[in-house]
């Protein structure tokens, strides 16, 4: 049984390898039969797509801006989501019910619509104590993407905390720990381990959603694809689309694989 299992996986891996090889061969054949001039166009534009400036420096946009946007949004979402997640676990209904309401509203709203709404609801600048805090489109995109991510992250936290066996609660209680101490010393350290795969999956999802930020007008990879490529021939555009699709895939797929591996590792420790 064990050897059959291995050979099946090995077979599958070799087929995947063959598929990858077939793609490479197809690209070479296509390049040899006239595709190379399109690829050359992609090569010329590649620094622009990645960094937003034709020479590759300084970084003003492009795919790197998407990455920065995803990191900034994830930081905000992690902080917000933690607060929201803890609020939905609160004993008091006064805290729990509004938190649930906000969480469900954010979870049920489309990312694109939420992003659009934030674009118009957040003012251009806020005056606090005479200080003017400007809100450029990038900040609005960060907030617009962070809100649904935070709601999803609070669900991850809730799931992780509730997956801790109730015996842990009873044991800690019988040892005289207070609720706060139980969370700090017993539940959260264990739940934290189980949150990480969900958190990483969420990050991959957020990275994919940064493509939507093009509606805020920031110079992300999609904006550049749409604007500066109006001058390329129609055939070449296919190559540009494939290149940008591959950028996202190359960034997100390793994260997804790593998250899945962690998930499997965490599944084992069921106390």
């Amino acid at each position: 049984m064990m050897t059959a299992q291995l050979s099946y996986d090995a077979k599958k891996k070799s087929v995947l390898f063959l598929l990858a090889a077939a793609v490479v061969v197809w690209i070479i054949v296509d390049a040899a039969t006239g595709g190379d001039e399109h690829w050359a166009r992609v090569g010329v534009r590649l620094p622009l797509l990645l960094t937003g400036s034709g020479d590759g420096w300084p970084v003003t946009g492009g795919f790197i801006l998407n990455v920065l946007l995803s990191i900034a949004s994830m930081a905000v979402a992690t902080a917000l989501g933690t607060i929201m997640g803890i609020a939905t676990l609160a004993q008091r209904a006064v805290i729990r019910l509004p938190a649930f309401l906000v969480m469900n509203f954010l979870r049920n709203s489309p990312w694109l619509v939420l992003l659009f709404a934030m674009l118009y609801i957040i003012p251009y600048e806020i005056r606090v104590f005479g200080m003017v805090i400007p809100f450029p489109p990038f900040m609005k995109a960060v907030i617009g993407l962070a809100l649904p991510t935070a709601a999803n992250f609070s669900e991850v936290i809730r799931g992780a905390v509730q997956s801790i066996h109730s015996g842990q609660w009873e044991a800690a209680r019988s040892l005289g720990y207070s609720t706060r101490q139980i969370y700090m010393h017993v539940i959260l350290p264990q739940a934290f381990r189980r949150m990480i795969p969900g958190w990483m999956n969420l990050y991959a999802l957020l990275m994919i959603a940064t493509a939507l930020a093009t509606v805020t007008g920031i110079q992300d990879v999609l904006t550049i694809l749409n604007t500066s490529l109006a001058m390329e021939s129609e055939r070449a555009l296919v190559y540009f689309y494939l290149t940008v699709l591959f950028m996202f895939f190359a960034y997100c797929y390793p994260i997804a694989v790593f998250a899945r591996r962690l998930e499997r590792a965490v599944k084992g420790d069921n106390i």
């Binding site: 995947l16 598929l19 694109l112 940064t210 939507l212 999609l222 996202f248 895939f249 997100c252």
Partner: peptide, 16 residues
């Protein structure tokens, strides 16, 4: 083949 299909569609933006 199915794995390739799933991973490509899961790891690229639906908008794109």
């Amino acid at each position: 083949l199915i794995e390739l299909f799933v991973e490509v569609f899961r790891n690229t933006p639906p908008l794109l």
